[in-house]
Write a protein that binds this DNA or RNA. Structure first.
Length: 210
DNA sequence: CGACCCTCAACAATTTATAT
DNA sequence: ATATAAATTGTTGAGGGTCG
C-alpha cells in the first residue's frame, strides 16, 4: 500500500511514483513474464497449499479467477459479460471482475483447451470441455476452497474495509519475528504457531459472531 | 558492526476507453 | 451491448545506503 511512509515521518516529495515507465514501450501488448521465476501460474495439480500467495494481483490470484471462471462455465455455458454479471451477483454486488481481467483469462482457458468458444453473433459462448471438466475434477477441492474464500471475502467487503491499524500490527509482528534472532527451536516455533492460531481463531470467531 | 528505512524493478489485475 | 486493447494501479520481492 501506499501507506508506507504514511506512518513514517519524513520523506521526499515525489514518493508515490515508483515505476512510471518501466518497460513496455515498444510493443503493443508486452506483458509477458520472465523475471525471478516465481512459478506463480497454477499448473496442473498445482494449487500447492493454502495459505498464502498474494503475489502481484489483487484479491485472489489470476489462478483463482481462472478456476472460478471454469467452474462457472462448467455449471452453465455463458458468454463473457454474462459471466461477469454472474460473478457480480455471486459477490453480492461487492466485487465485479473487470472485462479486461476476465476476457484474457477466458481466452487463456480456451487456449489451454479447458474451454471452447463458439461464436454467437458477436457474442462468444464459452463452454466447458472434457479437459476442462477433468481439470475441474482434479482441482475440485481447490475450487471449493476458492469459492468459500470468495464468500468470506464478499462478506468482509460488505462489512468494512481493513483498518490501517491492522497493517501496523502486522508490521509489529513481523518485526518481532525478524528480531527474534535466537535459534528457532521446535518448542519456540510451536509456541508462536499456537499464538497465531489462537489469534486467528479468535478473529474468525469474532467476525462470525458479529 | 548491526539494524532500519528507502528505492528499484516487475508482474498481475483493475480501470478506462475504443471498436464491433 | 459486448468484446478487445491499452493504460493505470497496487502489490510483492530484492537490494542498497544510512543511521545508531
Amino acid at each position: 500500500m501506499g501507506f508506507h511512509h504514511l506512518f513514517g515521518r519524513h520523506h521526499h516529495h515525489h514518493g508515490c511514483d515508483g515505476r512510471e515507465a518501466w518497460a513496455r514501450e515498444a510493443m503493443g501488448i508486452g506483458r509477458g513474464r520472465g523475471r525471478r521465476g516465481f512459478g506463480d501460474d497454477e499448473g496442473e495439480g498445482g494449487w500447492g497449499g493454502m495459505g498464502g500467495r498474494f503475489r502481484g494481483g489483487r484479491v485472489f490470484g489470476h489462478g483463482d479467477l481462472k478456476l472460478i471462471l471454469l467452474a462457472l462455465i462448467a455449471e452453465q455455458p455463458r458468454h463473457g459479460y454474462e459471466l461477469i454479471r454472474t460473478i457480480e451477483e455471486m459477490f453480492d454486488g461487492a466485487y465485479a471482475p473487470s472485462p479486461g481481467a476476465v476476457y484474457p483469462t477466458l481466452t487463456l482457458l480456451e487456449e489451454l483447451g479447458h474451454a471452447s468458444v463458439q461464436s454467437d453473433d458477436g457474442k462468444k459462448l464459452y463452454t466447458i470441455t472434457e479437459a476442462g471438466k477433468a481439470f475441474l475434477a482434479e482441482n475440485k477441492e481447490a475450487v471449493d476452497a476458492v469459492m468459500s474464500r470468495m464468500e468470506q471475502t464478499a462478506r468482509m467487503f460488505a462489512r468494512a474495509a481493513a483498518p490501517m491499524a491492522l497493517r501496523e500490527a502486522m508490521h509489529n509482528l513481523k518485526r518481532a519475528l525478524f528480531m527474534h534472532g535466537g535459534p528457532w527451536n521446535t518448542e519456540e516455533v510451536k509456541r508462536i504457531v499456537d499464538i497465531i492460531k489462537r489469534a486467528a481463531d479468535e478473529i474468525i470467531k469474532g467476525k462470525k459472531d458479529a
